[in-house]
């Protein structure tokens, strides 16, 4: 009787374990690939992962692709030293010592290009500003001139007790000729 009970218990545990292993869904599998490669998963999760890997074709191909790519990172390293590197560093240090600090700022080609572009933009802005300002001053001057002319006429009209209207300039002139 006890043998039978223990056998049933063993079978139940076995079935539960199998069910647990097959529990992992494709979404969970995809989320755990990197942790499986890095051996960050606990034993149970790793077993579930492996079980899913064996039984799901699409996840298997995805895993193979991801594994190959992830392994590439580890292989993409600089392992050889450059025998000329020290001389290169020393040459740069010597060059820096020789170059005056102010010129060091302009040592890089890109920096010069950047500086030149900024300078051109600033100069263009100044030039445009000057042009706009000049036009405005010119217009103001013209306006002033017109104003002076008008005020002369105003003075004339005032001295002769005439009502002066800007639009009636020709009218006043006609009156003058009549006199």
């Amino acid at each position: 009787m006890t043998r039978c009970a223990s056998f049933i218990l063993y079978m139940c545990q076995n079935i539960t374990n199998r069910l647990k292993k097959s529990d992992m869904k494709c979404k969970d599998f995809k989320n755990n690939m990197v942790y499986y490669i890095e051996k960050n998963l606990d034993i149970e999760s790793a077993e579930m992962f492996e079980h899913h890997l064996k039984n799901c074709g699409s996840c298997d191909s995805l895993y193979k692709m991801f594994f190959a790519d992830y392994q590439l990172i580890a292989s993409d390293k600089i392992t050889e030293s450059n025998p000329f590197f020290y001389s290169r560093v020393m040459a740069a240090i010597e060059h820096e010592k020789e170059t005056k600090p102010i010129f060091r700022l302009f040592a890089k080609k890109e920096l010069i290009l950047q500086f030149a572009t900024y300078l051109i933009i600033v100069l263009l802005a100044i030039f445009t500003g000057y042009l706009i300002g000049n036009d405005k001053a010119h217009l103001n001057q013209e306006g002033l001139q017109n104003q002076t002319e008008l005020s002369d006429l105003q003075l004339f009209a005032d001295s002769h007790n005439l009502t002066f209207n800007e639009e009636d300039i020709y009218y006043i002139n006609t009156n003058e000729t009549e006199e």
């Binding site: 600089i78 050889e80 030293s81 450059n82 590197f85 020290y86």
Partner: peptide
């Protein structure tokens, strides 16, 4: 000694 470390 350290060039590979730095370059890498």
């Amino acid at each position: 000694k350290y060039q590979t470390l730095v370059i890498n």
